[in-house]
Simulated scan of single mutants.
Amino acid sequence: MSEKSLAERVEQWMVGQMPIIQMHGGTSVVREANEETGEVVVELGGTCSGCGISNVTADNIRRDLIMDFEDVTDVTVRTASSGDNGASTVEGGRGGELKHETESAGHF
């Protein structure tokens, strides 16, 4: 029996967060989880792009992953900037140019 990879463990953790995210029409995916460096990249999609509090969600994900996983040292959370959450986009409504959550999506 092999131990789960960092990516699998982080994905399982994110699934536990999904009811909250999905309740608001959002989606998430773990894009990267580097076992050697401890770096994790999470992408938020659906209605998270263009949401006024997606930066709070991103901060909570970043803080909680670092606190809950000894081997996670750095977390980047990205959201799509376009606010596109239609059926024509891929992977749960993600679309548009990716930006770090600290960058303005230009929706206000």
Rank of each mutant, 00 (worst) to 15 (best):
Q17S: 05
V77N: 06
G83I: 01
T47N: 09
V42H: 06
V77H: 04
N55F: 11
S81T: 01
S49A: 11
L65Q: 02
V15I: 12
G46T: 01
C48N: 00
R31D: 14
D74N: 15
V29Y: 09
G46R: 02
T73R: 15
G46P: 10
F69H: 08
R63H: 12
T73E: 06
R31S: 10
S49R: 10
G26S: 00
M18A: 14
G50V: 10
R31L: 15
G16F: 03
M67W: 02
I20K: 08
V30S: 02
I20P: 03
E35H: 08
Q17I: 09
G45L: 08
E43G: 10
I66V: 15
V75S: 00
S81M: 03
E39H: 14
E39W: 05
T57G: 00
S82Q: 06
D74K: 14
N34W: 01
D68F: 09
T76V: 10
G83T: 02
T27C: 09
D74W: 11
I20D: 10
R63V: 09
V29K: 07
T73Q: 12
G52T: 13
V29R: 11
S49G: 15
T37R: 05
R78Y: 02
V41I: 14
D68Y: 00
A33I: 05
S81N: 01
V41L: 11
R63Y: 09
L65F: 08
R78I: 07
T76W: 09
T37Q: 06
D84P: 03
V56D: 10
N34D: 14
I53A: 15
R63T: 14
Q22Y: 03
N55T: 13
S28V: 12
Q17K: 13
G45I: 02
M67H: 12
L65G: 10
T37I: 03
G25W: 03
L44Q: 08
V56I: 12
N60C: 15
A58T: 04
N55C: 11
G83W: 04
G16C: 03
V56G: 04
I66K: 13
G25K: 05
N60P: 08
F69V: 00
G38M: 11
C51W: 08
V72S: 01
A33E: 08
C51Y: 00
D59A: 13
N60A: 15
L44S: 05
G46Y: 08
P19G: 06
I21H: 03
M18S: 14
G25H: 01
R62C: 10
S82E: 15
E70W: 07
R62T: 14
C48D: 02
H24C: 09
D59T: 12
S28L: 12
G26F: 07
R31I: 11
E32V: 04
M67Q: 14
E35N: 10
S49H: 07
T37F: 06
R63C: 07
D68M: 03
A80H: 13
F69C: 04
S49I: 06
S82F: 10
R62G: 03
G50R: 08
R31N: 14
V42T: 04
D68L: 04
G50L: 10
D74C: 11
V30G: 05
T79K: 14
S81C: 05
H24A: 12
S82M: 10
R63I: 09
F69R: 08
I53K: 14
N55P: 13
V29P: 00
V56K: 11
M18C: 07
E39P: 01
H24T: 06
